[in-house]
Amino acid sequence: MTIGTPTRGRSRTPTDIPTGTWIDRYPPPALRPYLRLARLDRPIGTWLLLWPCLWSAMLAAAAQGPAVPVPMLLGLLVLFAIGAVAMRGAGCIYNDIVDRDIDAKVARTATRPLASGAVGLVGGWALLILLSLIGLVVLLQLDPSAIRIGLVSLLLVAAYPFMKRVTYWPQAWLGLTFNWGALVGWTAATGSLGWPALALYLGGIGWTLGYDTIYAHQDKDDDALVGVKSAALKLGGWTRPAVAGFYLWAVALFALAGVLAGAAWPFYLGLAAMAVHFAWQVVGLDIDDPTRCLRRFKSNRDAGALLFVGIVLAALFG
Rank of each mutant, 00 (worst) to 15 (best):
P69I: 10
A67C: 02
W173Y: 07
A61K: 15
R10D: 08
L307G: 05
L131D: 14
T213V: 07
G210W: 01
V119E: 14
L271H: 09
I129H: 11
F254Y: 15
A244L: 15
W249E: 02
G91H: 04
D288F: 05
D221P: 02
V184S: 11
P241Y: 06
F317S: 09
S145F: 00
V152Y: 14
L260R: 04
I147T: 01
L77G: 12
L50H: 00
L74H: 03
D223H: 04
G227A: 13
M58P: 00
G9I: 08
L225Y: 04
S153P: 02
I205W: 06
A182R: 12
P29K: 14
G203Y: 06
A252W: 07
F267L: 04
H277F: 03
A115S: 13
F267S: 04
P161W: 12
I287F: 07
L139A: 13
R240C: 03
L294H: 08
P161K: 13
D219R: 04
T15W: 01
R39Q: 15
A60L: 05
G236W: 09
R301N: 11
I17M: 05
A86N: 09
V166P: 02
G284V: 06
P33G: 03
R296S: 10
T177E: 05
L131T: 13
R42W: 05
R25T: 11
D286R: 13
G258I: 07
L193Q: 07
R25I: 02
K105T: 06
N300T: 01
M87C: 04
V137F: 10
P6V: 10
A30I: 09
V68A: 04
R112Y: 00
W195D: 08
L174K: 12
A231D: 05
D24L: 12
A244P: 02
D101C: 00
F254H: 07
T109F: 00
L131R: 13
A115M: 08
T2K: 14
A315I: 01
P18K: 12
Q281E: 10
R108G: 01
W207T: 00
Y26G: 00
D41G: 06
G191E: 05
L77Q: 09
V106N: 00
L121P: 01
L35C: 05
F278I: 10
W125G: 08
T190Y: 02
R25C: 03
L31I: 02
L31P: 02
S153V: 08
G304Q: 11
